[in-house]
């Protein structure tokens, strides 16, 4: 895996944070586009970190810190944390100072942003799937997970734990 500079780690994490209004899906979309698609971050490692993040307590963006570490060690980890802190601090201050004034303006941005970010998430999922070239069975599994999450709102923790169990069973069957 190629290393990237601290400034880029900071910038990409900062950018992904801006895309996370409404959920962490926007985070994965930006990371997928900037680092996974160009081959800077292994798609298997990326999926693994995202899966671990879903199973961890607290905010579901811990994978960004781990990615920072994998990109450039402890300095990369610190750059990723800084990239998360800065927009959140500025946004928190802005919201605290001008909540009442900002709310009408945010309405005009939030609605189109939710549609655009949904599109970015679809593109990110498509790009990630293309990278590991799923076989027909895996495409079927992706479709089942998509339907379960979209239709039944199944918890991500359950999805990840079930996938781990299925992976283990498949390995046991093959060996």
């Amino acid at each position: 895996m190629d290393t990237v500079g601290l400034a880029e780690i900071f910038f990409v994490v900062f950018l992904s944070s801006l895309f996370s209004i409404g959920g962490v899906g926007g985070l994965t979309a930006v990371i997928q586009e900037r680092w996974v698609s160009p081959g800077l971050l292994d798609p298997g490692l990326f999926s693994w970190l995202v899966a671990l993040s879903y199973m961890s307590p607290g905010p579901k963006c811990g994978f960004l810190v781990a990615i920072g570490y994998y990109m450039d060690g402890v300095p990369g980890l610190c750059a990723a944390i800084a990239g998360l802190i800065l927009p959140t601090c500025i946004g928190s201050a802005g919201v605290s100072h001008a909540l009442a004034k900002m709310r009408p303006a945010m309405k005009f941005i939030t609605l189109p942003a939710s549609f655009a970010i949904a599109g970015a998430m679809v593109a990110a999922a498509w790009g990630l799937a293309r990278l590991f070239k799923p076989n027909p069975y895996e495409i079927g599994a992706i479709a089942v997970v998509t339907i379960l999450v979209a239709w039944r709102n199944v918890s991500p923790v359950r999805v990840v734990l079930c996938a781990a169990a299925i992976g283990l069973v498949l390995w046991l069957v093959q060996h």
Partner: peptide
């Protein structure tokens, strides 16, 4: 093997979350 299964799960999760 678990990692491969999780890749499918994460892709499905992102599609579902979209």
């Amino acid at each position: 093997s678990i990692g491969e299964a999780m890749q499918c799960a994460v892709v499905g999760l992102i599609f579902g979350n979209a």
